[in-house]
Computed example of a mutant assay.
Amino acid sequence: MATEIKLAAVGDILMIGPLLKSARTNDNNYAFTSIFKNVAPLLRQADLVIGNLETPLAGREAAYTKGNARTGFSMFNCPDELASALKETGFNVLSTANNHCMDRGAKGLVRTLKVLDEHELAHTGTYSSDPGEDNHLILDVKGIKIGVVSYSKGTNNILLPDGRAWMVNIIDPNNHGKIAEHIRRLADKVDLVVVCLHIGKECRHIPLPKSRQLVNLLLDSGAHVILGNHPHVIQPAFLTKGGSFAIYSLGNFISTRLYRNPATNCGVIVQLTIRKETDGTVNVTDAAFVPTWSTRLKTANGIKYRILPIRAAMLRPEPGQTASDRQLMIKIWKRTRPFLSDGRS
């Protein structure tokens, strides 16, 4: 008998300073759940939900967002309450290989994984001990064995400790063949291979040629689903005739506006139907898209942030969203919609 499951995926979970300030409670704890309340029902419908955690959970600090004087990059951290909020929202797996995973050093990276384990959130891409050739995650979802791989193009010039290069799955032009071999090896062990790639150029809607080359190589090597992150804006998605799916960038799931570019407020929830036939063949049979918008609401309790499903917000305005922000949301979505050509957007 054939088996079907639903897989949902979102983009960057980027907890920048103002988001943390708005979530801080009177007792100096943090309440993040309301940020996700409008999209949680959509995610909870899925059998497997994957997101990109683009912040360490490195412990309490006076300032969670800092600048790195040596590299010039921003460095992030987030209170542990985010993990429980993501679990409650419906997340099962978090990709942790990205350019901010070392923002609080090796100690912060290891602590992040410990916090995720405590909240029963599976993860892959970064490691507290040498994974060897098992630098991936394998899950069983309703009898379909799924392998999840996560790679990042770098760590914002923060060096990994000597002898511990295994802490982060790093991708560069010189090791594409090695990564393709990883995908082929994993494909022999599982029914479905999902690859999370943190690559590309920020704020660019068109994938770089090298990103296209890598995605094609990994699809040819046995990947069934490729989920791209890092550009912070939506990039094209496609479903192949052979039953594979790729999106070059899911955009931001939650973030403040970056680089004064309103397209960084826009992301997408990808909803995939995965079917395993009685002969063992597995294909992505359908891909649907729910566009989202990270907005800043004016409420009786001050400024709050929330992720809005755009189509629902277009039909019924969200209380607290300004008219100008709503108009901008609609404008950006109309501009972005052609990148998600499933015929229903």
Rank of each mutant, 00 (worst) to 15 (best):
R185M: 07
A187F: 05
D188T: 04
D188I: 00
K189T: 12
D191I: 06
L192W: 07
L192P: 06
L192Y: 07
V193R: 02
V195H: 01
L197V: 08
H198S: 15
H198M: 15
G200H: 02
K201R: 13
E202R: 11
E202P: 01
R204S: 04
K210V: 15
K210D: 15
R212M: 09
Q213W: 09
Q213P: 06
N216I: 12
L218P: 04
L218Q: 03
L219G: 01
D220I: 02
G222K: 03
A223I: 01
H224T: 00
G228E: 11
H230N: 10
V233S: 11
Q235H: 08
F238N: 03
K241N: 14
G243P: 05
S244Q: 15
F245W: 11
I247V: 11
Y248W: 02
S249P: 04
L250I: 09
N252V: 05
F253I: 00
F253P: 00
L258V: 08
Y259A: 12
R260Y: 07
R260P: 00
R260W: 04
N261T: 14
N261S: 13
T264N: 06
T264H: 05
T264F: 05
C266S: 07
G267F: 08
I269W: 09
Q271G: 13
I274S: 06
T278K: 14
D279A: 11
V282K: 01
N283S: 14
D286G: 06
D286H: 10
A287V: 04
A287E: 01
A287Q: 03
A288G: 12
A288T: 12
